[in-house]
Amino acid sequence: MSELKGWKEIPIGGMILDAGNSVEYDTGDWRAFRPVFGEAECINCFQCWLNCPDSSILVDTEKEEMVGFDLKHCKGCGICASVCPVNAKVKKKAEDELEKDEASLCIRIIEEGKLQEAGYE
């Protein structure tokens, strides 16, 4: 949280001059679940990027690769995993219904408390 400013120090009329400064605000600590890469290889279709409500899919625009998750802001909604076509393919191949944290997926959704157990962190 930024330090509270006095009335002489802020622009008039409630204007915010620093466009997009909400990046400084951490919404990652809302997260109960975390998206992580699983075993299935990402095909860089950017469906997760396109559908993320929190602009939290990190992409390398030069290499045209999806490179990870912006955990400072990701709220853990799991939409990235739900729209991932690789996930869909893995699920289709599997005989039983897969859990969201199944290791064979491309994007896994793991409870924050179970990350260590799953070998992350």
Partner: peptide
């Protein structure tokens, strides 16, 4: 930009 406070999974954003 990220850092807005819409609920997780919100359709609006």
């Amino acid at each position: 930009a990220p850092g807005h406070r819409l609920c997780a999974g919100c359709g609006a954003s």
